[in-house]
């Protein structure tokens, strides 16, 4: 039951977000267009490049989809409305999202095209930047909840959402999440001006449809993680819990999809510099502050 509800939610959210992304990229909002695009992709030829690494080429979009779905499985929509309420949910989320990197490198290597390959390796560089900023803010969140379970993390915010309790961690986590989902301005593996599509450049037809769907699932899973870790998940007055967590997730995803398009694409060196020289120290400060607050004022 929960599985169906979550999948339905993902499908609905993915559709809304695709419409929103279409608006952000092409300047027109249409709810029909994403459906037409998806249907049209299914009817197009699925081209395989001549010297492709067939295994990597075929597996990458599916692996990405699986990684996104696994990450979404530990996001609670409401008490009990969760696919797998693991005691180590926050850690599991991390582990699932690690496969995004693998999938992208495979997608880059697979088709034997220069743009895709450069895109794949670039994402490896990006990973070195964002990975610590995913893990370290989660550490601080788990410290307050005294648990890695995502449902306990939500209930721990009953008095005060983490976005107010640890705003530094929230900011770092959102930046890292956008880099993980290679959203602008961190779209180095697929940037138009740099790589003409990059890792997506050689995918066509149904494979491209799966790749785009998978990316949207990853974005939604990350937005769900932000809402769970920092925005109190299902907590909120009047409305039912699933409406709160769903609404928060969609709002976060919408911001992640649109905000970055107003600033120029990040330079890789600058991103790494930011992550390691500013991000990691700030994340350590965040952990320290949360530790002190948790000891001094128990809220």
């Amino acid at each position: 039951m929960s599985i169906f509800a979550i999948l339905l939610g993902l499908a609905f959210g993915g559709w809304l977000m695709a419409a929103l992304e279409g608006w952000a990229v092409h300047g027109r909002f249409s709810l029909v267009r994403p459906l037409a695009s998806a249907l049209a992709l299914l009817g197009r030829e699925a081209v395989v490049t001549r010297k492709s690494d067939r295994l990597f080429f075929e597996t990458a979009p599916i692996l990405l989809l699986v990684a996104g779905l696994l990450a979404a499985a530990v996001i609670p929509l409401a008490p009990g409305l969760i696919v797998a309420d693991l005691a180590t949910g926050a850690l599991f989320l991390n582990a699932a999202l690690a496969y995004v990197l693998v999938a992208l490198i495979m997608a880059g290597w697979g088709p034997d095209g220069a743009y895709a390959m450069i895109g794949g390796w670039r994402f490896l560089g990006q990973f070195i930047g964002y990975s610590m900023l995913i893990v370290m803010p989660i550490t601080a969140v788990a410290m307050r909840a005294q648990s890695l379970s995502t449902t306990q993390i939500v209930t721990s915010q009953a008095a005060l959402w983490n976005v107010a309790y640890q705003p530094l961690g929230f900011a770092l986590f959102v930046v890292a999440a956008m880099a993980l989902a290679w959203l602008p301005p961190f779209d180095l593996p697929s940037g138009t001006g740099d790589l003409a599509g990059g890792i997506e450049a050689e995918y066509t037809g149904p494979r491209l449809a799966v790749l785009r769907l998978a990316r949207m699932v990853v974005v939604l899973a990350l937005a769900g993680a932000v809402s769970t870790f920092y925005l109190g998940g299902w907590l909120g007055p009047w409305l039912p819990g699933w409406a709160w967590s769903g609404g928060k997730t969609l709002a976060v995803a919408a911001l992640m999809l649109t905000l970055g398009r107003h600033i120029p694409r990040m330079r890789e060196a600058r991103f790494l510099e930011f992550c390691w020289k500013a991000g990691v120290p700030l994340a350590l400060v965040n952990i320290f502050l949360v530790g002190v607050i948790a000891l001094v004022v128990p809220i």
Partner: peptide, 15 residues
């Protein structure tokens, strides 16, 4: 028939 079609267009786009 689909897959065999684009062999010659192997390399990436603006390549």
């Amino acid at each position: 028939h689909g897959q065999g079609a684009h062999e010659h267009g192997k390399s990436a786009p603006a390549q």
